[in-house]
């Protein structure tokens, strides 16, 4: 067996894994709302900062 068969199989398998991940994410609705997550990911940091401010005030 030539190594090329192995390489081809592997590369296509990797590609298919990513493809399945894509299908899965579309199905989960990740592409339905592309705006809110971009805002949401910034929240945690802000929260911590505000709490600290409050603590120093008290």
């Amino acid at each position: 067996m030539s190594v090329i068969y192995l390489l081809l199989t592997l590369s296509i398998l990797v590609a298919i894994v990513f493809f399945i991940a894509f299908i899965y994410s579309v199905k989960k609705g990740q592409y339905d709302d592309s705006y809110t997550p971009s805002v949401r990911m910034l929240f945690d940091d802000e929260l911590v900062k505000v709490n600290q401010e409050k603590l120093t005030k008290d």
Binding site: D32, D33, S34, Y35, T36, V39, R40, L42, F43
Partner: peptide, 26 residues
């Protein structure tokens, strides 16, 4: 973004709410 933040923290106002998620464009 304030709206998103407060609406996703609804569980702090009513503990029986387990989660809330905003879809901003909609």
């Amino acid at each position: 973004s304030s709206c998103i933040w407060v609406l996703e923290n609804l569980h702090k106002l009513n503990s029986k709410i387990s989660s809330s998620q905003v879809n901003f464009p909609k």
